[in-house]
Design a protein around this nucleic acid. Sequence first.
DNA 1: GATGAATGAGCTTTCATTCAT
DNA 2: CATGAATGAAAGCTCATTCAT
Lengths: 200, 200, 200, 200
Amino acid sequence: MQYKKDEMRQSILNSGEEAFLNLGFTNASLRKIVNNASTTIGNFYNYFDSKEELFKALVVHDYKKFMRLLTEHNTINRPDYLWEESNPKVGRDVLSHFITNIIPEFGNGFILLIQSSKGTQYEDTRELLINEVRNHFIEHIERFGENDNLITYAEIMASQFVDGFTKIFSDYQDKEVRQKLLIDHLLFYMIGTMGIIGDF
Amino acid sequence: MQYKKDEMRQSILNSGEEAFLNLGFTNASLRKIVNNASTTIGNFYNYFDSKEELFKALVVHDYKKFMRLLTEHNTINRPDYLWEESNPKVGRDVLSHFITNIIPEFGNGFILLIQSSKGTQYEDTRELLINEVRNHFIEHIERFGENDNLITYAEIMASQFVDGFTKIFSDYQDKEVRQKLLIDHLLFYMIGTMGIIGDF
Amino acid sequence: MQYKKDEMRQSILNSGEEAFLNLGFTNASLRKIVNNASTTIGNFYNYFDSKEELFKALVVHDYKKFMRLLTEHNTINRPDYLWEESNPKVGRDVLSHFITNIIPEFGNGFILLIQSSKGTQYEDTRELLINEVRNHFIEHIERFGENDNLITYAEIMASQFVDGFTKIFSDYQDKEVRQKLLIDHLLFYMIGTMGIIGDF
Amino acid sequence: MQYKKDEMRQSILNSGEEAFLNLGFTNASLRKIVNNASTTIGNFYNYFDSKEELFKALVVHDYKKFMRLLTEHNTINRPDYLWEESNPKVGRDVLSHFITNIIPEFGNGFILLIQSSKGTQYEDTRELLINEVRNHFIEHIERFGENDNLITYAEIMASQFVDGFTKIFSDYQDKEVRQKLLIDHLLFYMIGTMGIIGDF
DNA sequence: GATGAATGAGCTTTCATTCAT
DNA sequence: CATGAATGAAAGCTCATTCAT
């Protein structure tokens, strides 16, 4: 009954994903999850060792990919040069290309990691990502000379950038809409950053 | 110990504030709160009628002020004309003046209202504020002609703006630092918005 | 132990019935109930959604039957003509027949409804029944001309009649004994009523 | 401040009486009682050693009188001969005289003892009284020859008689109304009893 | 005499997890 | 594979009583 088993497992995964996204890890109760998956609390433990293991199964793939992105940092083809690009049309085009590659990289697992992992071993992921983004912002800021105030603000910017990025994935499933919003999002941060760096 | 009543009340308020900020309303348990306040659950109810009443005591002042700001909306001297201002120095100065007036208006109660009120009667406050900000963004965007994509993005911007604004109050207590960050924050959003409106 | 499920459920029902009968709904604590049923508080909630649901399970059947009796009121073959009957032997016989049909209609659920339902959604049942009986008494009284004093006393009579009726069911399980007592009870009230109507 | 003290004590007694009558001993909380008495929980214990002592203070006088009545049983001038009286007018007159003497004997303490003493040391009082009345009924029944069925029913009659008697005191404060109802009540039971003894 | 802060046991209910069947 | 009975800890809250002031 391997086939059947896989179906059940998938059903639990789907139900868990939905519950975690809507309620967060702690507030999503196993009872609701198994009810939605049309199975029982006892049977749940035939598929997963604990509530946290279910969460892990939902995010582990994206988490690894995400950690690879963070550590392999420099090998990624990032459109950083855009920060110095002055022709807006070129900007949109390159970003569009870049975003198209990014989109499939982040699934619901990513959203769970950032928005719903409080109470799990992954609860620091958002912090980690924000820190990475923050350092990235600081890099750019520092090219224009030290500015303590801006470096402090980089922390704020970073957390907002990450949350906005996640929110787009979370609130909009349509690929085209997502892409447009992500481009706006990146542009917004590039322009905003350059703006406060240049003090207008 | 009767003569200590105010001290105990303050101790519970402090412990509650800390717990609500760190864990949110629902996950902050009364047992943790009273342990931190060095008292007992039974005694807690000599000071507050319920967990929610403790929360209310922490936010009600800021909530009223906040609602007044929202409803008296148009009477507030907002630096909106800055959106069309081209001299950056003027921008910083006017904003500085505006921010200085805003700062003392928002205490920790404001942070609780935005970040930790889920499960209380105040849980819609963040939504309310985001909506207000979103409409404000849309106003400016529409001056430059309809743009469905940007109007969708206004939702994202607004929630980020509010969360960033709150984060500044939450992470930085020093008044001067706060002020500088808030100015950066406002500038960042003004520039970013104008940027994506103009498509570079 | 799954195979024992029905036994456990029955055990809780029995324990609950006993506790509700002895202490009333509010004062019967879940702890006592589950202790008597040899299980735990947590397990109780595998069988019933709440304390009130346990009560409901014990009375709902009798409650529906009871409400049907009240609403179908006129279709029931009541021995009312007996009030004018002068031959005592006929009285006992007809009553006996009537009572025999009533007896199986009321189980322990009926006793719970009348005696132990304070604090539940059924707490008005006794009042309802007393009112019905009171109106019935008044009907008979008014055939003999208005008598304000007696009409006031009808309230007392009705509540006593109902409580006595319930007490018979509560204190005596044996069907034959019950039947005899119920006949005495009805006779007692018929005679008593006629007596005070006639002022001896 | 003896004067003042007596006032406070009386205030607590009044508030307690009201609460016990309305809610029963267990469900009447000290908090409500002291609030209604316009004092504090701490001060309560300056006047009474415990919740039960407050109850005791409210009933002890009536309880003693009641116990005296029970033990001095035969010395009371009871209208028992009425059971053999055949002229109804004489019946009402004698009863009226008897009742007039009884009424002041039973105050609210008596109602508390019968209706609200569950959970206190007096919770058996109702039982005691019912038993006494039951024996009294049986005496009369046995004059007409053994009748097991009636003797069993005497238990029912007795509890109803007592509850009805108490209900009249509890529901009607007006002396004249009370008197009329009590007469009806006694007559009702005399007639009813004679009726079922005689089998019509 | 009066206050109300403090205590600890009790209440009903929810939860993740274990395990016999 | 699947079931759901059983457990025990924790949740928010109420209560009678004690006691320092």
